[in-house]
Amino acid sequence: MRPGWALRLLAFCGYALLLAPVIVVALISFSAGDFLTFPPPGFSTRWYEALFANGQLMAALQRSAILASVVAVIALLAGLPAAYAIARLRFPGRDAIAMLIAAPLLLPTLVLGLALLLALQPLKLAATWPGLVLAHSMVALPFAVRIMTTAFGAVPREVEEAAWTLGATPMRAALRITLPIAAPGAAAAGALCFLVSFDETVISLFLVGPRLSTLPVEMFRYVETRTDPLVAALAMALIGVALAVVLLVERLVGFNRALGRS
């Protein structure tokens, strides 16, 4: 049954509400003025040119990309065995482990950031690469486990059982049969973990230092002292990065397949 006009109108209003701020930011990013004003007094690409010429922001962008890539790899390496155990195995405490892994998502990021600072400062890991990687991995891991649990759960158990009957050990069957079938889910989980780390701001504010900062933190510091449209150009660049990652996953594997829905 095709949706009626009322449902279509409601969907259109919902999309318009979600996209309106992005459209406003996009227009401001091409402003020819010196301040954040809407509508813009004119249109120019001067703020994109200023963005790419800003060495501090570009260095922060590079650090954030490296950090997010490392976090995505670590979250996948740690999340794959946990997700397989939760999805495929039956053992005492399985639900408790799943809830423990998801616990960072239940805490406010402000509380989590302060707790990480208090825990990492005595170990001299604050304002260091290992400290940032550990903190971001803690936040990204629940997303990797959740997506991979769904992907592993969508693989028919009979496929593994057939491999067992042909002489494969449970470990070999999991590595050679189940994991390749669930690989699209791993791609989606890695992409999401990358975006979670790349966009993390609150926790990073507690753990960065003067010589080690991420792009969202530099963006936050920038708007504290300036009100020019460069921040709008930077926001559109971040939206472009997120959109590129999502489109890449959709192009390579498709989100329905990645989540085990087809």
Rank of each mutant, 00 (worst) to 15 (best):
17 L>Y: 15
48 Y>M: 01
95 D>C: 04
61 L>Y: 00
4 G>T: 11
143 F>R: 00
27 L>G: 06
112 L>Q: 04
54 N>C: 10
232 A>W: 04
113 G>P: 00
215 L>W: 09
110 L>S: 12
262 S>A: 15
240 G>D: 04
83 A>M: 05
201 T>G: 00
2 R>Q: 09
169 T>S: 15
239 I>H: 07
91 F>K: 02
117 L>N: 14
226 R>W: 14
20 A>H: 14
142 P>S: 11
101 I>G: 01
231 V>D: 05
13 C>G: 13
226 R>H: 15
120 L>P: 06
64 S>R: 01
140 A>C: 00
135 A>M: 00
30 F>N: 08
187 A>I: 14
45 T>N: 08
214 T>I: 02
146 R>H: 11
179 L>V: 13
121 Q>E: 15
89 L>H: 09
200 E>G: 07
181 I>W: 03
116 L>G: 04
176 R>Q: 15
208 V>P: 04
14 G>D: 04
205 L>Y: 07
253 V>G: 03
63 R>G: 08
65 A>T: 00
231 V>A: 05
47 W>M: 04
5 W>D: 14
69 S>D: 06
173 A>T: 09
175 L>A: 11
51 L>R: 09
251 R>H: 11
196 V>M: 10
203 I>R: 04
260 G>A: 08
180 P>T: 05
78 A>Q: 07
100 L>Q: 13
246 V>F: 07
27 L>M: 10
133 V>R: 00
123 L>K: 12
102 A>H: 06
200 E>T: 06
8 R>M: 14
104 P>A: 02
2 R>G: 12
35 F>R: 15
134 L>E: 06
61 L>F: 05
6 A>V: 13
80 L>Y: 09
131 G>S: 02
68 A>R: 00
92 P>Y: 08
119 A>F: 14
181 I>A: 03
103 A>T: 15
146 R>K: 13
182 A>T: 04
107 L>A: 13
173 A>W: 03
170 P>Q: 14
191 A>C: 01
128 T>W: 02
186 A>I: 10
59 A>N: 10
72 A>W: 05
178 T>R: 11
209 G>D: 05
41 P>E: 04
85 A>F: 03
193 C>D: 02
132 L>D: 06
262 S>R: 12
117 L>G: 11
248 L>E: 12
59 A>C: 13
245 V>R: 07
145 V>T: 03
38 F>L: 10
212 L>T: 00
248 L>M: 12
48 Y>F: 10
141 L>C: 05
44 S>T: 07
192 L>M: 06
120 L>I: 04
54 N>H: 14
156 P>Q: 11
160 E>C: 11
68 A>F: 05
198 F>N: 01
75 A>L: 01
136 H>V: 05
46 R>C: 08
250 E>G: 11
120 L>F: 08
211 R>W: 07
247 L>I: 13
163 A>M: 07
71 V>C: 04
22 V>D: 11
106 L>Q: 03
91 F>Q: 02
163 A>C: 11
120 L>E: 06
147 I>D: 02
196 V>S: 01
76 L>F: 08
150 T>V: 09
117 L>E: 14
227 T>K: 13
126 A>L: 09
143 F>K: 01
106 L>T: 10
141 L>A: 09
32 A>S: 15
201 T>V: 12
